[in-house]
Design a protein around this nucleic acid. Structure first.
Lengths: 268, 268
DNA sequence: CGCATCTGCGCACAGTGTGCGCGTCGATGA
DNA sequence: TCATCGACGCGCACACTGTGCGCAGATGCG
């Protein structure tokens, strides 16, 4: 109808007082996206992925968002809360299959475990932070993952208590080994070394100390493998250790349940 | 023979020049213990045990040692190096039995694992720091523990490669679950809550969200147990999952070795 | 006794998380 | 159309961090 206040700011030359703040010099803040919790979380994850956990400061984050450091505090209570938020966000990336056939529990556990490991390697800072935050703050995605993980084991046939124990054991293993991998890889990146270079350096250095001949040998063995695959194989080995035992216990439990059922039907 | 320079400072009134710095006003620095790497490490561990990882600052540490913050840098290159040193020191507390009877490997692994867990619970900050330092820096005690751990498995009958995998798996599990425990306990202590209080609060809160009825039930179950023992039982459950599988694989390996030996002796 | 070396310390710098109050913006009700 | 209001971003400031630098005093050696 009349003046469009978006394009041409009205009454620009009318105000005679301050030529310094004209229509043109005035920062058109609304053209940059507004801050929001979602945008902050997304940018935080990007920053962490690119530059690592030690590079996360509220000032740096604000700069990437075209905002001052303290503006973030309108949307996030503290840096710690921000970290809880991004950790939960990463848990949202996990794939925890829903079980249709109870016999598929082992595959489902494999998928879940690999998914957790992959997420941890994509976002290595998560693993460094998990030890401090402990997963005890219970964001929605963490809760959801926990529930769906437990569902796998209970529909497989474990009772609730054992499902909790088993899930805790498996995820402890996954988190433990993945955070070791992540720490290792980030330490390497900090020094700008490849894994092969490290093993090449470390083998002889260990062999120099006579006592460490055993370890030196191990390091030299590592040189012949593709390190990425070797780490994956280690992971699968440990995971299968646990799943094998779970399978045995499940079979025993189902057998004894069958037996009991047969006994009661026979006695009737 | 002559003046004992330890008790009475010699030649005190002899120097006529500066009355400001008399024997009495002069800081008797040598009476406080001198700084040393050992003393710094010990005091750091004490501080960390008492006040947690976030309370460790070079200034606070210096104060406890009766020294300025920057004095510490004569003995320690950086705060990160100091942390590496104290972590290695804690690894020195571990008990890793030497194996006489190969059949005792399982007990030895139990002892080692429990020892690692106990150390982690005594010094909860270690677990929070392991994710960042990754154990890839190789202090002497860490190396020693690794060697002795591997020795258990190799004298039990595993070949070197599998011993490495197995040790890595077990210790990943132990570190993973212990750091979860440690994070949990420190988070509780920060809020001044007991475990029972938390479960009492969280059960109903979860039940309020209809979807979380399952988890609420679990929390209420937790209320009936002694939490310390429950955590220990969880730990033992997961540890036995791994050791059971290792036992199976070892038996299979020994059997096939026997078989092969018999076959060759039979063919000769 | 004189000299060299080691040790501790004060100062300073850049950088951190975050509380507070101000100005400016967009939407809303009359 | 205009006045009002709540949300939002920002600059400032504070206390605190790790740590490089140069000085002063103490210790040990010739």
């Amino acid at each position: 109808m009349n003046i469009d206040s978006d394009d041409t700011d009205d009454a620009g030359p009318v105000s005679p007082a301050l030529p310094l703040t004209s229509v043109w010099t005035r920062p058109q803040r609304r053209q940059k996206e507004q801050l929001s919790r979602e945008r902050i979380i997304a940018e935080t994850i990007a920053l962490l992925d690119e530059e690592g956990i030690e590079a996360l400061s509220m000032r740096a984050l604000g700069q990437r968002l075209g905002a001052g450091a303290t503006s973030l505090y309108r949307h996030v209570a503290s840096k710690d809360e921000l970290i809880e938020l991004v950790v939960d966000e990463v848990y949202g990336e996990l794939e925890v299959p829903e079980l249709t056939d109870p016999a598929g529990w082992r595959l489902a556990m494999h998928v879940t475990a690999h998914s957790l490991r992959q997420a941890g390697l994509r976002h290595m800072w998560v693993m460094q932070v998990l030890g401090q935050v402990g997963l005890n703050y219970l964001g929605p995605n963490v809760v959801s993952v926990t529930q769906r993980g437990l569902a796998i084991l209970t529909t497989a046939g474990f009772d609730t208590e054992e499902a909790v124990r088993a899930m805790s054991s498996v995820s402890s293993f996954v988190v433990g080994i993945t955070s070791a991998e992540a720490g290792w890889l980030t330490a390497l990146r900090r020094q700008g070394m490849t894994e092969q270079e490290w093993y090449q350096n470390m083998g002889p250095r260990m062999a120099a100390d006579a006592a460490d001949a055993g370890l030196a040998e191990i390091y030299l063995q590592e040189l012949e493998k593709d390190p990425t695959e070797a780490r994956l194989a280690n992971f699968v080995y440990g995971l299968d250790l646990m799943l094998d035992s779970l399978q045995v216990r499940l079979a025993a439990k189902l057998a004894s349940a069958d037996e009991k059922a047969q006994a009661t039907t026979a006695s009737q």
